[in-house]
Amino acid sequence: MMQVQITGTMVLQIVVSGLLAGGLYALVALGLSLIFGVMRVINLAHGALLMLGAYTTYWLFALFGLNPFLSLLVSVPMLFVVGAVLQKLFVHRVVEAPELSSLLLTFGISIFIANVAMLAWSSDYRSVEFLTGSFILGQIAVSKPRLISFVAALGLTGLAFLLLHRTKIGKAIRATSQHRDVAQICGINVRRIDVITFGLGAGLAGAGGSLVSTMFAVYPEMGLIYVFKSFLVIALGGAGNYPGAFFGGLLLGLVEGLASLFLTAQLSEVIAYIFLVIVLLVRPAGLLGGRT
């Protein structure tokens, strides 16, 4: 199996691509983590929302030739609205309910969205061929869409942090996620925060989808794996630990990259999975610590 000589350059190449993928994982996971932090709801429809973001970019590109990175300006607000509506119509009714309800509810929503997408757009793989080729930096090649997506993901993650830490609404969101009851007593409209948070989370998923579409195929069932990976990122970083989620994303990208180099790309999801189970076994609070 190991006929190919593994050189230092190859490892470096993999590390770089892994980190680039990780930036994107972190962005998507941040959305999931926000929602979980505020409502204690694991949004299993997160992947379906990501898929909607990817299709938004695809159609804007295919129909109007819009630059996929500019289409973020459409996909993020659109998914914000979708998320806010989902929260207002359905999710708010299970926020206080046992976990079983919210898991099943968001699972149902996810299946519904994915299959309606299948009916509307068929299960064909589509791609946004906007940027191709690579930048060559010394001995390593960095694919253009990956690099730009990484930068965009980093920028969006940074914006989200600014929003959370500098604005009034962001502070209210963080307060609610730390102590729901206390926030309520302090005059924060927790219901409204829930709606905004779900919208934000969905917006981040949509942004992730838009960026993913520049690199990988777009199809209705593309989202499921991202729910899993986002969750893994959160598990690595520790639940409710937002900076942790960022480093968790980078770590996951790295591990996947190295696994595909030393083992096989076919099993990279298997590796990620085993990684999750081991993390849960050894450090249930997340490798990077954080409050639970």
Partner: peptide
Amino acid sequence: VHQAIFGALIVAVVL
């Protein structure tokens, strides 16, 4: 359609 209905049905039963 079948899968979408199942998805909707899960939502309906839970709520």
